[in-house]
């Protein structure tokens, strides 16, 4: 038993390391001075660092750790343009998060606990839209944005994403597992419908809300499709797009830039870890 456990642990650790390797690589490289990074990753194939050759393919040695620790790239990476792109990302992400977190609970409560005609039909449409790939929705969004004269602004990205049906779906599934008698209890105790929602249903949805927060944040922080389509002004791009631009232009700074970009995502994941698992469990009905 113990031996098996040990083997499992080793295998999983190795897999985890392999998965994390690009990220660790990036972090360690971010501490190199810019020149070193450039030197290493451009075509400097000399007899000294070639490890093996097969015809035209050369394998050469790459050190994971920097030979000299420096924060130079971090300082260089924080130029005004990068910082502007960072805040662009924030300014796109925050309204979308707010929108989702306000609209989804209300919609989920409405779908689950209030009976009205065509409710299930509308929910069915929601599911269909949710399942459509984003690329399919880009054309109608673009046309709509044009008609509303929103084409070069962030609103063209924010509005469709804030109303995304995914949040409603996730929360409604969570609500299905809820004991509805507590809502009745609240009603009998004297609360009007809005307070029943606010004081009882909303706290009950909390794990799923946090899961929604985390998932939406990651989705928005990494948004690329919509920003490429809708935003034309270079200075309005979010960081996710700018990072790609940076790779070709300034190879020395890219590691530090990417590491800084990664930090909010990691922090938010650490915050919402348990709730993510709980929320998805409740939504799919699988107990852990």
């Amino acid at each position: 038993m113990k031996k098996k456990h040990l083997i499992h642990t080793i295998i999983l650790t190795l897999l985890a390391l392999i998965t994390l390797l690009p990220m660790l690589f990036m972090i360690s490289n971010s501490f190199m001075s810019a020149k070193e990074a450039v030197n290493r990753y451009t075509d400097l194939v000399t007899p000294y660092n070639v490890w093996a050759s097969e015809g035209n393919i050369h394998y050469y040695e790459v050190d994971v750790l920097p030979s000299y620790l420096s924060f130079e790239t971090y300082v260089k990476a924080m130029n005004p343009t990068y910082l502007r792109m960072f805040w662009n990302s924030v300014l796109i992400t925050v309204p979308i998060l707010l929108g989702q977190l306000i609209i989804s609970p209300l919609a989920a409560y409405g779908f689950e606990f209030i009976t009205w005609k065509y409710k299930e039909l509308l929910f069915f449409l929601y599911i269909i839209v949710m399942l459509l790939p984003i690329q399919l929705l880009l054309v109608p969004h673009y046309i709509a944005a044009n008609l509303l004269h929103l084409n070069d602004t962030w609103w063209a990205i924010i509005i469709p994403a804030a109303f995304s049906p995914f949040g409603t779906f996730l929360l409604r599934q969570h609500l299905k597992g809820l004991d509805t008698t507590i809502l009745d209890a609240a009603r009998v105790e004297g609360e009007n419908e809005w307070n029943v929602f606010r004081k009882v249903a909303l706290p009950a949805m909390y794990p799923s809300l946090v899961a929604l927060f985390a998932l939406t944040f990651v989705e928005c922080w990494n948004i690329v499709d919509q920003s490429i389509v809708f935003i034309k002004d270079v200075f309005n791009e979010p960081l996710s797009v700018y990072l790609a631009r940076m790779v070709t232009a300034e190879p020395g700074k890219i590691f530090a830039a990417a590491t800084i970009y990664m930090i909010p995502a990691i922090l938010i994941f650490m915050l919402t870890n348990e709730y993510l698992i709980k929320g998805i469990n409740l939504a799919t009905g699988v107990q852990s």
Partner: peptide
């Protein structure tokens, strides 16, 4: 608090750098 201070830090850096 780490998250909030991260964003505040970046904000501060922005102001200073610009």
């Amino acid at each position: 608090s780490v998250l909030v201070s991260f964003f505040l830090l970046i904000g501060l850096i922005t102001l200073v750098v610009v």
